[in-house]
């Protein structure tokens, strides 16, 4: 990383996740542990995936426990118990919010970065395996009253 410090990028995503959860749900989020990510990442439950590109490119994987995805669905206007599709919509939008806030912070801090997110995706399943290829990754666990979120942030600086 020449211009961007790895830790600054990761911190932006962690701060964004905390900010968005607090804004939407009014609860505290505590960072529990972090470390270098592995090439293979496994998730159970709901996972939001958001890519981004600009002066640096990469993606956010956000593993969301079911109680949290239900709470997000209700906070985003849902009124009944969500169907699996609706949980996925809530997870997608949550991933979009976290990435948007993180990239906003990074773009304002590093003018000219022009980092932009792609439309989000979400997946629901057991032992889903994702693979980091050619990127640096970092793993963070964020504890909420609804369970632990698992963030995996991977990116590389564009030449």
């Amino acid at each position: 990383m020449e211009r961007y410090q790895f830790s600054e990028i990761v911190d932006a995503f962690v701060d964004a996740a905390k900010e968005v959860v607090t804004q939407i749900l009014g609860v505290e989020v505590v960072e529990q542990q972090d470390g270098a990510g592995d090439a293979l990442i496994t998730f159970d439950g709901v996972v939001a995936v958001v890519g981004f590109s600009g002066a640096f490119s990469g993606r956010l994987l956000l593993g969301i426990p079911e109680p949290l995805s239900v709470a997000l669905f209700h906070a985003l206007g849902g009124e009944t118990l969500p169907s699996p599709d609706e949980e996925l919509f809530a997870a997608s939008e949550f991933g979009n919010l976290v990435t948007g806030h993180a990239l906003t912070s990074i773009n304002n801090r590093f003018p000219g970065s022009n980092a932009r997110p792609s439309p989000p995706s979400a997946f629901l399943g057991k032992r889903m395996v994702f693979f980091n290829f050619g990127t640096t990754g970092s793993r963070v666990i964020l504890a909420t009253p609804y369970g632990d979120m698992k963030m995996d942030i991977a990116f590389k600086e564009e030449p």
């Binding site: 919010l97 948007g100 990239l103 906003t104 773009n107 000219g112 022009n114 997110p117």
Partner: peptide
């Protein structure tokens, strides 16, 4: 969800004068 200065400046150049960041 995006609200950085460069995006808002680009929007203003197009003629979009109002914005609200999600959530």
């Amino acid at each position: 969800a995006m609200g950085d200065e460069e995006l808002l400046a680009e929007a203003r150049t197009l003629g979009i004068m109002s914005s609200l960041q999600k959530p």
